[in-house]
Design a protein around this nucleic acid. Structure first.
Lengths: 163, 163
DNA sequence: CAAGATTGAGACCTCAATCTTT
DNA sequence: AAAGATTGAGGTCTCAATCTTG
């Protein structure tokens, strides 16, 4: 084990480090490819970007098919600026409408239009079908649930029990 | 169950569909936040974007600290165009050098510079530390390995056994 | 013609200001 | 001052077209 590879000098990354990062890259890369394949199916059906679909689906399951921009930012995990632009595209496509709040004039509500509702249902069942084919079918239903739980728990700062 | 919600018409998303998509959003969102936190630690240490770091790390563990652009595209999961731009930034920062292949004049090799090697080692141990703190510590080492295996297996078209 | 790499245009997000309302 | 939303500038990737080499 000499230095002819040009490594040495100071602090060759230990083999354990290499294995650890390798695992992470396998995981992150796998999730990325999986995501791309799934959303490719959705895009082929409805012509929607991932974030646009996420907003439509959230509104479809929200009371009165509407929610403040604020709340959309939270579910998307985006900055408020990014959320505004997503809403701009959806509004330009006629899938949502903006309505000012009656009680707080700073707040803008995004409301699903009928056309947006149709697209949300179609894209939703397309994604559900893709999920069954690519995940639930090879993995099993409860194994998938466990996977989602583990990851969601990791993403929270330790100490988040109930809501 | 009347239609006053504006839903009905044809094909209300079944409760099973809603649960399925909910699980997926929990999973994908969790991975996204986890990724962001980890790479935030790396960026704070080395000032690197995720894709730049991935290239540096790959080159650091490659024979002769170099690889053809081709191969970088594959590990990144990017188009060749995107890979070119990543290499542009790394070359402008003095972390890699471009060298034409002697045997095939279409091929360009990216080679890690000494400065790039230093950054790769620092960023690598920063990411390894973050991984231990946020994943291996709360989850256990083999549980993490299992997670990576499962996801990587899902991302492959069914029928990829060896290699 | 096919493969490797690059360029330019466009899509999507973030950060830093800004404006309005509370 | 703080909160909600928007705008403009900038970074990162993709697609389509191009150029070179095999």
């Amino acid at each position: 084990m000499d230095r002819e590879t040009g490594y040495g000098e100071q602090g060759c990354p230990s083999a354990e480090e290499v294995a650890l990062l390798g695992r992470w890259h396998a995981f992150a890369g796998g999730v990325r490819r999986l995501s791309d394949e799934l959303l490719e199916d959705v895009a082929a059906t409805a012509g929607l970007s991932p974030s646009s679909f996420q907003v439509l689906w959230f509104l479809a399951n929200a009371p009165d098919q509407s929610a403040p921009m604020n709340q959309l930012s939270a579910t998307l995990g985006f900055s408020t600026a990014g959320t505004t632009k997503v809403a701009d595209r959806l509004a330009a496509a006629g899938m949502i409408e903006r309505r000012p709040s009656a009680t707080d004039r700073r707040v803008i509500f995004a409301r699903l239009t009928d056309a947006g509702g149709d697209v949300a249902r179609m894209a939703g069942s397309a994604l559900a079908a893709a999920l069954r084919k690519r995940i639930v079918d090879p993995l099993g239903d409860d194994e998938f649930a466990r996977l989602a739980e583990v990851v969601a728990a990791l993403a929270r700062p330790p100490g988040h029990h109930c809501e």
